[in-house]
Amino acid sequence: MFTGASQFALVGVIGGGGSVWAGAAAAALLGSRNALYGLRLSSLLGVRGPRRVLAAHFVIDETTAMAIARDDPSLSRFAFWATGVALFILWNLGTLVGAVAAHAFSNPKVLGLDAAPPAAFLALLAPRLRAREPLAIAIAAAVVAIAVLGFVPAGVPLLIVAVLVSIYGVLRTQR
């Protein structure tokens, strides 16, 4: 799974005591935006066969942003592959370092590491909040998630919020 927000969500739900399946569902829902990125990129990249199978792995926020920011299609393709390969290597090296280093800490709370995931989610969220509607959706989602938290298994608040925002999105378009 090479898409950061989904990785964090899966780990977050399991770490919070939720079922692994609620975590997997949240990860897949967060990954749905990559399908739209793929749609934007498919004409830019023009990849077929095995190259498409490899290119799909690199379809993420960063590579899409770097590729669509170029005017020249050949520069777009270069930006996509260069960003994808560099991020893939560094991200997984970082993950390995984290996995090895985690064994060195007896209590991650001492380092404030339990405060790190919400901050990471916030940093991923912030660039998407540059208008009034997404900000309102974010606040409403947070309120709903907190409100249902005590009544459903861990991880399920995310799925409730995903269903509600999808209904809202479809209804809004039809108006």
Binding site: F8, A9, L30, P117, L125, I137, A145, L158
Partner: peptide, 13 residues
């Protein structure tokens, strides 16, 4: 909209 709602929920919970 889905990542916005899910990330906000994750921050809150």
């Amino acid at each position: 909209l889905i990542p916005i709602a899910l990330l906000a929920s994750l921050v809150a919970t």
